[in-house]
Design a protein around this nucleic acid. Structure first.
Lengths: 344, 344
DNA sequence: CTGAAAGCGCTTACAG
DNA sequence: CTGAAAGCGCTTACAG
């Protein structure tokens, strides 16, 4: 605990560098040098300064440091759909990596469809964030990203990417993963397969949809639905689309989903209608959320190393913040096909 | 998009208030007054300033504003276990409410057992956060909270509270909720009940444990285990403790868990051992995470309005930041007992 | 209605 | 090794 001078309540009286300087009887410059641990200060003076600082409870004002230095030790993390449990895992990785490096993380909500993306990014720059991590870029953000590049603001793209953006990114190979998953499902004999994907504006959802098609085609299976191919990455959307699909009277023996939440929505509907999974309908998700293998829920899906994605993303960003100027790098993290009970 | 002067690349050349002042031919004071929308500036000048600001792409430097004003429009959100999906939901509520009010949120990790709590709080103060939201206070934080109170730093406690801390808080009545849940389970005829709780240092876990005991006692049931009563709020811990419990050879016909993740761990072990739920063993969780009613997983639990907790917390904090000085307030949000299949 | 000046709390060349 | 001074980009009484 901070040792406090006994001179009454110091409520809201901020201890500044001048207070320390006065007590030691030196200039504030010397205090600054001593505190920052730079050479060029005598051992003796450094000790006296540090002692005085501790006695007074002095802590440098970060805001003043930032203004003076023109840079901050904070990064901005922008994301859209906080309700989607994919993102907290990403955030967790970013925050963990940032904490280790002494950086702080400003979290901004860019709105469910990214409508506040530019606004949020600008707000980050207004407060001199050292760099930005995007998790939900879409086509509409091209101008924003180009403007950041032009201004020399370091940023990385996590998970979703905009092709052509000149920035580092951390992704998984969604195309290949979706292909594998589709091949597995079709390989179990399901040839009439529905696809319930995510948002068409997302590179991730598009890659997964294409991978599903390719994988199914390789095994002689086909996509039976035209409606409901795109939608929200939520359980509710999955359930709604599943109801429409199953009510259409069309024969379907498997559903490939854009993520695990959609898949859970489909499972909800199976329950509702008394369909056995996987006997009557096979169901597969994507992302391998923690709940996807919880007790009786054993969903076939693809593991995406979300926390690692956040960590690596911060590392790439930090490198840029520190001045690295090489060409944009893309880290492709490994995915794992998880065959569980819902596809038998 | 920002209209840019055509005078070559303005890379990293920050547009300041002086640039705007020069272009308009007035002092920077006038620009400041005009931008801030205060009265005392002629309509004409205001228009010219705003136009020039837009032309130049001027945006006030928040860091400079903060230093000058001595306050920020950012709050700090401190939490321990980001991997616990309880907290992202809380964060979601805080961020949503803060965004509406034009506040930003700094997220700090205080370490899994809160060992960085003081350090993280101090770092927040160093950057002049307007207030703090705690989610994981424990007994060891008493000095910290008292010091904040003494210094007049606004803060609120979410979910977990430290009795006697003079601050606003938002909670649910864990004691009553646990009592109801235990009564329900014992009411279905289970009289030999195990309790696998959370951390003993958490007010939430303690209240739940006590509520379980009281509820069971009211129905003539008893707690059969002494070991494993306290532990981590994770699936792994739940599974490990369930294995120990079931291997002890003691008769148990229900398990009450400190949260849903522990309960899922128990369900994992039931699967492992071929135990039918709820016929052989009833299982109940706490918190009602989204996965707790996913498809075949239908866990009896208690709904805790997490996002609402975050929203209300921010509202309380904002009021304090704006100078409200009434006595500490405690908001108790309603909980809902969710009887599902795992308790039959 | 407008401007000159001080100052928020630091850091950093530059002299000595 | 130490200090005086300038300045980061704003805001805000205070004069005029």
């Amino acid at each position: 605990m901070v040792t406090e001078a006994r001179s009454g309540p110091d409520k809201s009286v901020r201890v500044t560098i001048r207070d320390v300087a006065q007590r030691v009887g030196v200039s504030s410059a010397s205090v600054s040098y001593a505190m920052s641990g730079r050479p060029g200060v005598s051992e003796d003076l450094r000790d006296r300064v540090l002692t005085a600082a501790e006695d007074l409870g002095y802590r440098p004002n970060k805001v003043a440091q930032q203004l003076r230095r023109g840079r901050t030790d904070a990064v901005g993390l922008l994301f859209a759909d906080i309700a989607n449990p994919f993102y907290p895992d990403l955030a967790s990785g970013v925050i963990a990596a940032a904490t280790v490096e002494g950086f702080e993380v400003f979290v901004s909500n860019v709105g469910i469809n990214g409508e506040r993306q530019t606004e949020a990014a600008m707000a980050q720059l207004d407060r001199n964030s050292a760099g930005l991590l995007f998790t939900s870029v879409a086509d509409q953000d091209r101008d924003l990203l180009e403007s950041l590049t032009r201004r020399g603001v370091p940023f990385v793209q996590l998970h979703r990417v905009l092709e052509g953006a000149a920035a580092d990114s951390v992704v998984v190979d969604n195309l290949a993963a979706a292909r594998e998953l589709a091949q597995h499902v079709a390989g179990t004999g399901r040839k009439r397969v529905a696809v319930l994907g995510g948002a068409g504006a997302s590179s991730v959802s598009r890659d997964r949809e294409r991978g599903f098609r390719e994988g199914l085609a390789m095994e002689g299976a086909t996509v039976v639905n035209e409606d409901g191919l795109w939608g929200a990455l939520t359980r509710e959307s999955g359930a709604a689309r599943a109801r429409t699909l199953l009510s259409a009277g069309q024969q379907v023996d498997a559903v490939l989903c854009g993520n695990d939440m959609i898949a859970v929505g489909v499972l909800d509907v199976c329950r509702e209608r008394g369909l056995r999974v996987p006997e009557d309908l096979a169901v597969a998700g994507f992302d391998d959320m923690s709940f996807s293998s919880a007790g009786p829920l054993q969903l076939t899906t693809v593991t995406v190393p979300r926390e690692m994605m956040g960590r690596r993303g911060f590392e790439l960003l930090l490198r840029r913040i520190q001045g690295y100027d090489g060409p944009p790098e893309r880290i492709v993290l490994p995915h794992i096909l998880q065959v569980r009970e819902t596809t038998g």
